[in-house]
Design a binder for these strands. Structure first.
Lengths: 217, 217
DNA sequence: AGTTGTGAACTGATTCACAGCC
DNA sequence: GGCTGTGAATCAGTTCACAACT
């Protein structure tokens, strides 16, 4: 099974958008969708949509389009959201608290299986239904609860050391909310969500009177 | 004044990263920084850094590098974060509340000058030091308070209509947290922060055992 | 008719490599 | 020695255009 040719980075981002749009349409009763319809809804060309989907197999039916239920299943499988990922949240500040009560987290297959903070005044409290653990329990609980994902929601100054601890404990991926590039060894994936950059993008575009939109993750 | 050749989209994203790194180093007392140092810190080539910065002028000093204070001022000016932007926040749910107490918002020149929600049970309450206004006051307050930026933090189903109201009221840019593509007419900029996409990026990379990191905004 | 999948052409971005400067 | 700025070359991503299929 050698046919995994190449997957352009931008393609992976778009897969999420495809999935969301098709889920919406499927709920509205649509049985099929064409690359043209999908492209129009997302501001992309039909060729782009077809190229992206063709990276992973021939899901389309010439003359018909793509079957929504079939494509949803394929995309979930490709993206890995049909599996369940246990996650450790580190940092119970603004962002951490918002994430704890954020429904979509769980809906995408991520389960916050443990919460940590270094502030002794909140360690051992229960916040939004989660017990806050001390940082020194991190390694133990990550292994015990089969946690594969770390969520870094601490200030920039501590982000790297928290990431190091998570990786040492065995996580395979990190979702980083700190405004700081994380240096990680190979085999660990990092996705960063950076508000500062988003804000500055917007300031730049607005102050230049720039046209056009920019998807930001 | 024709010398505004072209600005690659990815360049704009990186400018934010440059600014952050240089600010950090400047605070540590560094007077200059070379493209090589900057690139190394951010995982980029030195040529990339120079090309990006050269889009906006010749800030560098051959043999020396870039002066930190000078470059910080230039970058802030380019990005527009040396100006002040009044923003309207729409939606006082999880994300909205987190944004209200999020310091970086203000530090990047964004001032939440008015907060709105459609839920009558929270309209007219004070939350995190902000009075929550009814949606029907939106147009009036946006004009009255010279608001140029709208922040959409409502469910996907209402995002487009909220964006339409903001634009009708006169905002020039929208920061969108709803998992939904916003259709906007020209002259209005949109930057979207999409957690679903970030989560799925991570699930994809981890389940593929993929190497490498991905900056996500 | 309508639609997919894909090689070819094109556009855009990154890297290379070096002239010019300190 | 070190460094910037930039044209040229390379690489990546997108769009085009059409054969194949329903």
């Amino acid at each position: 099974m050698p046919p995994r040719p190449k997957i352009p980075r931008p393609t992976v981002k778009r897969l999420s958008l495809y999935l969301r749009e098709i889920e919406t349409r499927s709920e509205l009763g649509h049985k099929t969708i064409s690359s043209k319809q999908l492209g129009q809804a997302l501001g992309l060309t039909d060729a782009q949509v077809r190229k992206d989907l063709a990276c992973f197999g021939n899901f389309g039916h010439p003359g018909v389009g793509y079957q929504t239920t079939e494509l949803i299943a394929e995309l979930r499988n490709i993206l890995g959201t049909d599996r369940q990922w246990n996650a450790a949240l580190v940092g119970v500040g603004n962002i951490g608290r918002a994430l704890m009560s954020y429904g979509r987290f769980r809906r995408k297959g991520f389960d916050i299986a443990a919460v940590f903070d270094s502030d002794p005044t909140i360690v051992d409290q229960d916040i939004a239904g989660h017990h806050v653990h001390s940082m020194k329990d991190l390694a133990g609980l990550v292994k015990e609860r089969d946690i594969k994902i770390g969520v870094v929601a601490v200030p920039a100054a501590h982000a790297q050391q928290v990431a190091d601890q998570l990786i040492a404990a065995g996580v395979l991926g990190i979702l980083n909310f700190a405004p700081k590039r994380l240096d990680v060894h190979d085999k660990v994936s990092v996705v960063s969500v950076d508000f500062s950059v988003a804000l500055e993008q917007l300031a730049f575009q607005v102050s230049l009177g720039l046209v056009g939109s920019l998807e930001e993750g």
